[in-house]
């Protein structure tokens, strides 16, 4: 099996500069490979500050790792030739959070699509270019005549975000990295956009990394999930296992914090919970100060990763009777999507 996009012991540290000595470990030694076969939908989930956006920026080559490597088809991003880099930029496509900020208000919305067509020489004639753009728009459920020629402010947030999906699609990418694509879109439109992402994965075989803080939508559309906490992967694997029966105390906290309709007014009967800003530092497990099941060992050393079952790995001392895995590739716990 060849790896498409790969992180090898990637670490990213911010700060520690001239003025401030404080360093922030945004991504802490993550190894993760995305296979070319069996494209699946993978959720990268965590609170703000968990490092999920930094991780996706590393994968997009928008920032380099402090140590470790980011590889595309076995080639390190920083050693790529011009043509290889261009291919990478075409085959790995981002969909960003803010559907306002990506548009230049002076250009029409379809300018974004036309630029992509001409830069990557996707079409040999004007008519062909037009047809490509129209096809891409139709695939994401937009009517071309209602979108082409409009300015960004004339489109709704949901429409703008779908134009972005269409742009990603136009380039026939291998991987789409969607960073919180629906967090700024009205709830009733979220479903439509997520549904079009799911179609891209299912029908066109594109691997999709869905970066989110919303575990319910992750559960609904993804097969696999990676839970990040302060730069570390604390739990990963089959979404049905991780969400339905979370094992890491942090995942348990996240899942129980999702407001559910069954069991109304249960929250207040529970004990106090502590949020990230009250976590403080710990020499061992980063979650130790917030963890309800904290043990002495947790404050002294960082827990290794334990393999609980074929499709789940958890970084927590509670499971130290299970086999330990060294330098784990997160993707080894993933399930293949149904064919």
């Amino acid at each position: 099996m060849t790896s498409l996009l790969e992180l090898k012991n990637a670490t990213k540290i911010f700060g520690g500069g001239f003025f401030t000595k404080r360093e922030t470990l945004a991504v802490d030694d993550i190894t993760f490979s995305l296979e070319a076969e069996n494209p699946s939908m993978i959720a990268l989930a965590g609170e703000s500050g968990s490092g999920k956006t930094t991780l996706s920026r590393l994968l997009l080559g928008m920032t380099g790792p402090t140590s470790g490597q980011v590889l595309y088809k076995g080639q390190d991003l920083k050693n790529m030739s011009r043509s290889e880099r261009k291919l990478f930029r075409r085959e790995v496509q981002p969909i960003l959070q803010d559907p306002f900020a990506v548009y230049n208000p002076f250009y029409k919305a379809d300018h974004l699509l036309n630029v992509a067509v001409s830069k990557f020489k996707l079409a040999s004639s004007k008519a062909e270019a037009q047809q490509l753009v129209e096809e891409a728009l139709s695939t994401v459920g937009l009517r071309p005549d209602e979108t082409i020629g409009r300015y960004p402010h004339q489109l709704s947030g949901g429409q703008r975000q779908r134009v972005m999906v269409a742009r990603a699609l136009l380039l026939k990418p291998k991987v789409i990295l969607a960073d919180e694509p629906v967090s700024m879109v009205d709830a009733s439109l979220r479903a439509t956009i997520l549904e079009s992402l799911r179609t891209l994965n299912r029908d066109m075989g594109i691997s999709i990394l869905y970066v989110t803080h919303d575990l319910t939508t992750a559960y609904q559309i993804c097969q696999n999930i990676v839970i990040l906490y302060r730069g570390t992967v604390v739990e990963s694997g089959d979404v049905d296992l991780v969400i339905k029966d979370p094992k890491h105390p942090y995942t348990q906290l996240l899942v129980s914090s999702i407001p559910q309709l069954r069991g109304v007014r249960e929250w207040e009967n529970e004990g106090e919970i502590r949020s990230l800003d009250e976590a403080g530092d710990s020499a061992g497990c980063k979650f130790a100060n917030r963890c309800p099941s904290v043990m002495d060992v947790c404050r002294k050393e960082a827990p290794p990763t334990f393999s609980l079952e074929t499709h789940r790995a958890v970084k927590c001392f509670l499971y130290d009777d299970k086999p330990k895995v060294e330098n784990v590739d997160i993707a080894s716990t993933f399930v293949s999507p149904p064919q």
Binding site: A187, S188, L189, R190, A191, T192, L194, E195, L215, T216, T217, Y219, Q220, I221, I243, K244, V255, I258, Q260, L261, R262
Partner: peptide
């Protein structure tokens, strides 16, 4: 509104919002 609350109990074949604007 109640139906559009995402659920962790069952996976839906298709995600739906409230139709119309």
């Amino acid at each position: 509104l109640i139906e559009s609350v995402p659920d962790l109990n069952e996976k839906r074949e298709k995600l739906t919002g409230i139709p119309g604007m």
